[in-house]
Structure formats: structure tokens, C-alpha cells
Amino acid sequence: MSTQIDDPAVAAFINAVNSGDRDAFFAALTPDATMSDDGSERDLVAWVDKEIFTANGRLDVDSVSSDGRSLTATYTNATWGSMRTSWTFHVSDGKVSRFETGQA
């Protein structure tokens, strides 16, 4: 595994998180995107606002799968501090249609 993000949709997602750009984040998603956190379905808008955008979330990628759609990262935000996390992305028509995250 490497740390190179080759999937453009996943790269756009990560760049939006790390720049704190909410508009770019939602532009990287399909309109009907869904997500889960630690195996539980979450309200995407409420979760990203709480866990990413109001808490200064940041993803530091540690490793990426060969297909570019699964990764491990150190996720840091003002609420929880830093933790090792796993992320899996489903992409449709060049945008993230679903992501699943949780502690690694």
C-alpha cells in the first residue's frame, strides 16, 4: 500500500476535508450520498458538520489500497483529538456515493 490517492473522487473528498471547504466537500459527493461511522448509519450532513467542519477535522493518510478506495489515516479533530481510522469509499459517476469510516 502507498499513500498516493489515485482516485480523483477520493482525492477531492480528502482535499475538501483538509482545507475545511464544506462546499467542495459536498461537490465531491453524489446528491444521494450516504455514510456510516463505526458500522452505524449516520445522517451525513449532521455528521460532517459536527465531526469535520465545526471541529476542524483533518485526514493524514497513512496507507491506500491498490484500487484507491480504501485507506487508513490518522483523523484529528478538536472534539476527539487524533485516532487511527479506516475509510472505504464507493464512487459513482466520478463522485463519492458512500463512505464508511471507523476506528482502525
Rank of each mutant, 00 (worst) to 15 (best):
K50F: 10
N15V: 08
V61Y: 07
F89G: 04
T3F: 14
V91N: 13
I5T: 12
G81Y: 09
A55I: 13
A28L: 04
I5M: 14
A55K: 06
W47A: 03
P8H: 08
I52D: 11
M35N: 07
A16R: 11
W47I: 02
F53K: 01
A11R: 15
V96D: 11
N56H: 14
V17P: 07
I14C: 08
A28P: 12
K50A: 11
H90D: 14
D32G: 05
L29F: 13
G81F: 05
N56L: 05
A55C: 05
V45D: 15
S36E: 15
H90C: 06
D32Y: 01
L44E: 11
P31V: 01
S2P: 12
L29A: 06
M1D: 08
R84E: 14
Q4I: 08
G94R: 02
F99A: 05
Q4Y: 11
F89I: 01
P8Q: 13
S86M: 00
Q4K: 15
A16V: 06
D93Y: 03
E100D: 15
F53Q: 01
F89Y: 11
M35T: 01
K50W: 13
D38M: 07
F26K: 09
P31C: 02
H90M: 11
F89R: 08
A46T: 15
T34W: 00
A104Y: 04
T30S: 06
A11Q: 15
D6A: 15
V96A: 13
E100N: 04
G94H: 13
R42C: 08
R69K: 09
S19Q: 07
V61C: 12
S63C: 09
V10W: 06
D49P: 04
T76Y: 12
T30A: 01
A78Y: 06
A24C: 04
A46P: 05
S66C: 06
D32C: 00
G68Q: 08
D38K: 00
D7E: 12
A12H: 05
A46K: 07
T74M: 00
R42P: 04
S65I: 12
F26H: 14
F25P: 04
T30L: 01
M1L: 09
R42A: 10
N18M: 02
P8N: 12
E51K: 07
